[in-house]
């Protein structure tokens, strides 16, 4: 594969929090139209990678390059926990936020945009919930609403941060179906996941992280016992050292 096929390309990407690396010298790319699961132990840098691609954290080194795509055109779905669910907003309004990249804070929400939001809610099984308050719904329903917002955004690149962490089996099955649909439509999808069975079944590509890349490629080649063991060992070794990034130590 040449770099021209990449929608997102990572070059020696390093992200640090308080100088401790959360993600270390990651090089590679997400091909146009690929469907990739990002897996790894806790603290492996999975969410950090998603945030770096979305431009939410600044790399300490290296770069993220988007090919033929503006960073506004990314549909980023944060973890449910990052959202203030006590805020009084209706499900329809929360879904309409998906139009933000087109209308911003001041543009007009057209009738067509509202229709698109209603249709998205129907697609995720929340028909009739439009005027319900977002916080009054169950975690699974809230997650469905966030998927509706991604549908509304209609983006070529979709980043999902732990989309199934607080969700029952039925909702997960429905939403995985939706991800499959996006894949069929040719969108590029990157999702942080924990369930290896799920990943093996539905995600052709996988990236196994333990602060650095352990393996990246076809899911069957990535999720091998050897790789998983290596990932766990690497993550434990890192924790024991509580390291400062080597390069930074050298630099200053």
């Amino acid at each position: 594969m040449t770099t021209a096929d990449y929608l997102v390309e990572l070059g020696d990407l390093t992200v640090t929090y308080d100088r401790h690396p959360a993600l270390h010298h990651l090089t590679g790319g997400f091909a146009r139209g690929s469907l990739t699961a990002v897996v790894g132990p806790n603290g492996a840098g999975k969410s950090t990678l998603i945030k770096a691609i979305a431009g939410l954290v600044r790399p300490a080194g290296g770069h993220v390059a988007l090919h033929g795509l503006s960073s506004r055109d990314i549909a980023y779905m944060p973890q449910l926990a990052a959202i203030d669910d006590s805020f009084p907003i209706s499900v329809l309004d929360a879904t309409l936020l998906g139009h933000w990249r087109r209308v911003g804070a001041f543009g007009t929400i057209t009738r067509a945009m509202k229709a698109a939001a209603r249709e998205a809610l129907a697609t995720v099984g929340l028909e009739g919930f439009e005027s319900r308050s977002f916080g009054s719904m169950s975690a699974g329903q809230r997650q469905r609403a966030l998927f509706a917002r991604v549908l509304v955004a209609d983006s070529p690149l979709i980043l999902l941060d732990e989309p199934f962490s607080a969700v029952d089996a039925r909702t997960t099955a429905d939403l995985i179906g939706l991800i499959g649909l996006w894949h069929d439509e040719g969108r590029t999808v990157v999702a942080v996941l924990h369930d290896f069975g799920q990943v093996r079944r539905y995600f052709p590509q996988a990236l196994l992280l333990a602060r650095r890349k352990v393996a990246w490629g076809e899911t069957a080649d990535v999720l091998t016992d050897g790789n998983l063991l290596a990932a766990r060992a690497m993550s434990e070794a890192w924790d024991a050292e509580a390291p400062v990034c080597e390069d930074e130590r050298a630099a200053g």
Partner: peptide
């Protein structure tokens, strides 16, 4: 203001 209260990371992700 409403969007920023409700979901600040999303707003930053769409470059607002």
């Amino acid at each position: 203001l409403v969007a920023e209260c409700f979901d600040p990371t999303y707003l930053r992700a769409v470059r607002d």
